[in-house]
Amino acid sequence: MKAGFRLFILFLSLWTSFSCVAEIEIHEFDDPQTKARFLRLSDELRCPKCQNTNLSGSNAPIAKDLRTQLIRLLKEGKTDQQIQQYMVDRYGDFVLYRPQFKKGTWPLWFGPLILLLLGLVVTGRIIRGRKAANSDAAEDMNMGDDSALSTVDQSRLDELMKSKNTDERMTGNKS
């Protein structure tokens, strides 16, 4: 009985996890709009320490501090742009997942588009080149006229047409 109880406790303990003791911050906001702004900004700002993580997803102490700053700035009534500028002034363009338009960042914005256009031009030229090559080859082999049928095919077609005409006459009789 006692052994059974022990086993039961042991069994129950399998469902217990001790790993979920991570600190969870609780932020209180005056209104849902501020909360939404906080969530959006902390998603769009990048943690300078653990790179490729945003502020909202990072456990780094600096990310926590920056979240605290973010809330302070929101409470002070700063606009999104002012807040982003605050971060950029301190941590550089790196902190913005959506970089500003300026001299150094235009390749980021237009680079993909330029590459796409370049790709289209190159693909277009290759396709056109291939088409020209194909028609050249066809002419070379003297098979340019696709509509010409061989005599065997032509006679078969004539036969089919004839039988079709007969069919039509038959149905015509019935109706």
């Binding site: 300078p48 320490k49 102490p61 600096i62 501090d65 920056l66 700053q69 301190r90 941590y91 550089g92």
Partner: peptide
């Protein structure tokens, strides 16, 4: 202590 000057300096570690 709070790391506020650190933030103004762009310190991240």
């Amino acid at each position: 202590e709070e790391g506020s000057l650190g933030i103004d300096l762009g310190v991240y570690g």
